[in-house]
Simulated assay, not measured.
Amino acid sequence: WILHVDGSSNTKGSGVGIILEGPNDMMLELAIKFDFQATNNQAEYEALLVGLRLAKDVGVKKLRCCSDSKLITEQVGGSYQTKEPQLQRYNLMVSHLTSSFDHFQIEHISRAQNVRADLLSKLASTKRPGQHKTIIQETISTPNYDSVAVLANNPSQPSWISSTWQYLTDDQVEYVMNEIHRGICGMHSRARSMAARVIRVGYYWPTMRSDWKAYVQKCKACQEFGNLHQLPATTLHSMQSAWPFEWWGMDILGPFPIARGQLKFLIVGIDYFTKWIEAEPSAKITAVNVQRFTWKKIICRYGLPQAITTDNGKQFVDKKF
């Protein structure tokens, strides 16, 4: 299998173009627009990640990836060192995905050899909000004024759109929805993700998005255990401290990219009155490390606080702490 990827970033937006070519002239094309600002290098990495996930979902075992970004191909190949923290995280995700293939190779090609993926990425980056996402491609062999032109409203003559209307029946729709949402490989994803997965495996029906939305709303497991806000809206209350270093808030951030000494977490404390921040990197987030941070960074410097607010994590509810 051959994967062509390209990312585009301009003043109108950012997007990626992906082309996956397989045996028997099989070709999958994707044009995806970002709803967030991205640099050129970030867009190139996003294109590579989307392409790798697509190849993994299709079941590809041997993959050759082509990109016109010299930086990305050399960083993924190991010839260039990745110094920027954001690109380091991208590089780590790419390494994790490529490990699922039996054979993976990435090579740099010229922009002239990557024209199709480049056009798809520019098409996605210039898409306006609210526009339809369907792209119909067809070759017209004769001018429309020619007498032998095919009319779309002629039922006796085959049309280029005939194969598009091979929808699933109602029973088949129900089976596909159950299998993808809560089958052996189901993850109880949301409606938009489910619709994308249906299209990816080759199924389609006209009311697909609205059906998925209604299906997810009726799923008992999604309503009981989904990440939804069940509490009613209430008025926000400000947290006020009477004097400096009386009331602290503490939390643990991470994991971040691994630094020297295997440091990848950050223990943070902030005073509610002065907004003063105390922070300390840590390799492990244990109750002992949190206790040592509290004693060394807060109590020994500013005295015993009257209150410490936490999220009741295991490290903060430990008896020793």
Rank of each mutant, 00 (worst) to 15 (best):
K275G: 02
I267H: 09
T294A: 11
D211G: 00
G15K: 02
G15Q: 01
L30R: 09
M194S: 05
F293V: 10
I199H: 11
G77N: 08
G183N: 07
F104K: 08
S282W: 06
W276H: 04
S156G: 05
V268C: 08
E280A: 15
D171E: 12
H96N: 15
R190T: 01
Q306G: 04
R182D: 08
C222G: 01
Q88Y: 02
F36G: 02
I285R: 07
K127F: 08
T73N: 04
N227G: 12
V317P: 00
R116M: 05
D6F: 02
V148L: 11
W212K: 00
P244T: 04
L253M: 15
L87E: 10
I285M: 14
W247R: 15
I270H: 07
D311H: 05
K296T: 06
A214M: 03
D271H: 06
Y175E: 12
K12E: 05
R128G: 05
V94I: 13
W276Q: 06
A279C: 09
I18A: 06
S193F: 10
N153H: 09
R116C: 03
P257R: 08
F273A: 01
K297F: 13
R192A: 10
D25L: 13
L30M: 13
A283N: 12
E224N: 12
W165C: 12
E74N: 15
G22T: 02
S125H: 02
G17C: 03
